[in-house]
């Protein structure tokens, strides 16, 4: 009997929420593990002169593949984590939180990530 029913589309009932959530979860780990270390090193220890980092060496590291990993762990994933958080905060304050908010929040994260990755590609070396 069900042979005559049209087969439901494999996309039926799907939505993007799991994707945003996976990026959010991965970004949360990065926020907890990498971002504080980066803030400590580049925001406190280096400016205070407690440790010394040579710019040339830093650029060398950054233009290697590790620079791309760094961009992913410290910019790309945390940006999507923040976007998801901010979007849900809007929802919680009843200030939207629907697809327009999602577009603005995730769009901003995408632009930030794109610029960071583009900057890495533009690096000499």
């Amino acid at each position: 009997m069900s042979n005559h029913m049209p087969k439901p589309s494999r996309r039926q009932g799907l939505h993007f929420e799991p994707l945003w959530w996976l990026l959010f979860s991965a970004g949360g780990v990065c926020f907890a593990v990498f971002v504080p270390a980066v803030a400590l090193i580049f925001g406190v220890l280096w400016p205070l002169g407690i440790i010394d980092i040579s710019l040339a060496q830093l650029q060398g590291y950054y233009s290697s593949l590790w620079g791309l990993v760094f961009t992913g762990a410290v910019i790309f994933l945390p940006a999507f984590h923040a976007a998801h958080r901010i979007r849900h905060a809007f929802h919680d304050f009843k200030l939207g939180g629907g697809s327009t908010t999602a577009f603005i929040c995730c769009g901003t994260a995408a632009v930030v990530s794109f610029v960071a990755i583009w900057a890495w590609f533009m690096l000499p070396g």
Binding site: S2, K7, R10, G13, L14, P18, W21, L22
Partner: peptide, 24 residues
């Protein structure tokens, strides 16, 4: 449940069946 749901939607997207095998 979110992990299960993400898995279930991925499986549905690629195999056309819901998780657990009975979807049709």
């Amino acid at each position: 449940g979110k992990v299960e749901s993400a898995k279930s939607m991925l499986i549905q997207l690629f195999s056309g069946r819901a998780i657990g095998g009975a979807g049709q």
